[in-house]
């Protein structure tokens, strides 16, 4: 599975508010969305992140993986993350 890293300068607040200084765009994230970005920032691999989510939340790994991939695709489109 491909791994991802957050692009430079992306700032996420505790409230789940994300501001892209390069483009001036802002976003809001729900709790899991914010967690995923946090895990990415810490350098976790995709598999590690999915495991962590399935461990902490009431969801099986298949669903967590599918949602993770969908989420990552959006983040790529918004130029928030990139594949390593």
């Amino acid at each position: 599975m491909e791994n991802y890293k957050m692009l430079n300068n992306v700032a996420v607040s505790e409230n789940g508010f994300l501001f892209l200084p390069g483009t001036g765009e802002s976003f809001t994230l729900n709790e899991i969305g914010r967690m995923i970005l946090e895990y990415l920032k810490e350098g976790n691999s995709s598999n590690e992140i999915i495991e962590k989510i399935a461990g902490e939340y009431d969801v099986d790994e298949t669903v967590a993986e599918r949602d993770f991939n969908d989420f990552i695709n959006q983040l790529k489109n918004f130029r928030i993350v990139d594949a390593i």
Binding site: T28, I32, G55, E56, F68, F71, F78
Partner: peptide, 21 residues
């Protein structure tokens, strides 16, 4: 330990005129 309620990860871009909840 019971697991936390799961909601799929969401990111929403903020547009003027189409704000949030």
């Amino acid at each position: 330990m019971s697991k936390k309620y799961y909601e799929r990860p969401v990111i929403i871009k903020q547009h003027s005129g189409m704000m949030n909840k």
